[in-house]
């Protein structure tokens, strides 16, 4: 696979009129969102508002019913030239351009920490093992786990697991990293270490979409904050405006309760 990088003016992610239902329940309605390169977008909202589903639609872990999603200018899910749904291989090629970090970490338990990070570069990108190892060592150092290469996931704390998961996502040099409530399963003392890593990534210019309940993080790190309510984006603003002067009563209430 070639190291394709899109021109700077193409957004990392562009979502247009995306909708999704589970049975009779409409979980996403006409979602429009553009995330430019280097931007951090925080997605807020109460449980069940559709935040995670929106994130999972971006890399097609959930298939939206309507609308289009482009990753670095390339449409995901539909092969437009052939006029059909993407096959598994086409989908995999595009998914390889997105990283994802899950609430429950999902590290592969049979692989050591460094193997977890090397796995996708080797078996998805076809990178030589030695090169993958060099990258993995560098990334584990970046997330502060240089001493854990050969540990297995079950021996790590939640915060350490999540930092390995971040290194694993970074190893694919993705166009965008999707964070699905990355700190929600951590005990309060461990939240900080993961948020610190994420803050550093934003400084380095990584494009990130972060579904989170961490208001402080959203305020300090985001370029845009998006608020979802019953599947609709009811507010989209830079953090300064979002947190000090929200437009809707709903967001005002949400911020009061969260404060």
């Amino acid at each position: 696979m070639s190291e394709y990088t899109s021109p700077a003016n193409v957004p990392a992610v562009s979502i247009k009129r995306m909708s999704k239902s589970f049975g009779d329940i409409e979980v996403l309605r006409d979602i429009d969102l553009v995330v430019n390169k280097g931007e951090v977008v925080s997605v807020l909202g109460s449980s069940g508002s559709g935040k995670s589903t929106m994130l999972r639609c971006i890399n097609w872990l959930e298939e939206p019913d309507r609308g289009t999603i482009h990753i670095a200018g390339q449409r995901i899910g539909i092969n437009e030239q052939a006029g059909r749904k993407m096959n598994n291989k086409e989908l995999a090629t595009l998914r390889a351009k997105t990283g994802m970090v899950f609430q429950g970490f999902n590290l592969w338990p049979h692989l050591s920490v460094i193997q977890n990070v090397m796995e996708a570069p080797i078996y998805v990108k076809g990178m030589p093992k030695e090169q993958a190892r060099v990258i993995a060592i560098e990334l584990l150092e970046k997330v502060g786990l240089a001493d854990k290469h050969d540990a297995f996931p079950f021996t790590l704390s939640g915060g350490q697991k999540q930092r390995v998961a971040i290194a694993r996502a970074l190893a694919m040099s993705p166009e965008v990293i999707l964070f699905d409530e990355p700190t929600s399963a951590l005990d309060p003392e461990r939240v900080g270490e993961v948020l610190t890593v994420m803050k550093n990534l934003s400084k380095e210019g990584y494009t990130m979409i972060v579904v989170t309940h961490e208001m402080e993080f959203a305020r300090a790190v985001s370029d845009q904050v998006v608020f979802l309510e019953k599947g609709l984006i009811i507010e989209k603003a830079p953090p300064a405006k979002f947190f000090s002067n929200p437009e809707t009563e709903r967001v005002r209430k949400f911020l009061e309760i969260s404060a």
């Binding site: 890399n59 872990l61 390889a96 990283g99 996708a120 078996y123």
Partner: peptide, 26 residues
């Protein structure tokens, strides 16, 4: 747990590789 499979899909694994590298060993 489906999370292991989802993580592999999200990282661009094709079904056969996913099965051989992530699912089957476990």
């Amino acid at each position: 747990p489906e999370g292991y499979v989802e993580a592999a899909k999200a990282h661009g694994f094709t079904p056969l590789r996913l099965y051989l590298r992530i699912v089957l060993p476990q």
